[in-house]
Design a binder for these strands. Structure first.
Lengths: 159, 159
DNA sequence: TATTGTTATACTCTATAACTATA
DNA sequence: TATAGTTATAGAGTATAACAATA
């Protein structure tokens, strides 16, 4: 909390992580823009491409209010990338699912999105293993699967 | 470009980097919200706390249109965190500079912001050095200083 | 003529609150 | 009564285009 005086090495690493975050967003936004999608839209589409899910769950996963998802899915639906299906088990629920076109777009997004692939190619397998283990420890051994949920919502904290 | 089939280890690392990006934003937004600032406002304030600069340069650094900066600085100015000063050398230019209160806030933000400090504390010095060097190579030995510029603008790519 | 900052406009994202249809 | 999704509303960020002041 109070800044216990951090050593230069740690500050270096922190600055580098800032660089990684910046690079991640550049690539992500570039990929989304190439399909005329906003970041939020690309995020939702990518999430649904793994597995169709109720609107509510999309909101929970992306850590935003359910009302936002309505609009984002509306726009994706207008583009023909996503559709709303009834849930046979609960008539209140609408399952958001990518169309074929949406799946194709999601795949292209994902390909363009693993921005780290090329830089990582410069590292040996031993180095990549080290990097993986160090990152794991840094994140506290969180379970994987954060790949899509990654770029959360910055524009938040309004009002 | 075309997805040359990436090995599982690299995919692991990519997923972990996604986790890092997510964590970075969580911390950043939490810190900003604690001061009732949006991400964009915190970003501009942090940038100016290093060095006052023309509105134009803020936009260039944050990679957004100059017209956006007008509004963000407006809101920061209303809060008394930033002020606009004339540039003696060029009367067209307005230098955005943090007030004392703004500097104090920026400092608190920065302290709360190096989110990686605590997780990194679990790593030995040798491990931190390795991590630093690996990240440097990943980023292509970019110059440092990306700490503040880091979380760029996701909400972009609109209209 | 070019540049700086601003204004006007329109779109997206965000949260909050109220509404509906189900459960 | 509680839950899922929607609608309405308002604030913030973003880009584009046009403008005044200055270079």
């Amino acid at each position: 909390m109070a800044t216990p005086r951090t050593d230069p090495l740690t500050l270096d690493v922190i600055a580098l992580i800032g660089g990684v975050v910046a690079r991640y967003h550049e690539e992500y936004d570039r990929a989304a823009a190439a399909h005329a999608l906003t970041g939020a839209q690309a995020r939702v589409l990518g999430l649904l491409s793994h597995e169709p899910m109720p609107m509510r769950k999309v909101a929970r996963t992306l850590k935003c209010e359910p009302s936002n998802i309505t609009g984002i899915v509306d726009r994706l639906e207008l583009r023909g990338l996503v559709e709303r299906r009834p849930d046979p088990a609960d008539r209140r629920v609408k399952l958001a699912a990518p169309t074929e076109d949406g799946m194709r777009t999601a795949r292209q997004l994902r390909d363009a999105l693993d921005f780290a692939r090329e830089p990582l190619a410069d590292l040996s397998e031993a180095e990549r293993t080290m990097l993986r283990d160090l990152l794991r420890r840094m994140l506290g051994d969180e379970p994987s699967g954060a790949a899509d949920a990654a770029p959360p919502s910055p524009g938040a904290a309004a009002g």
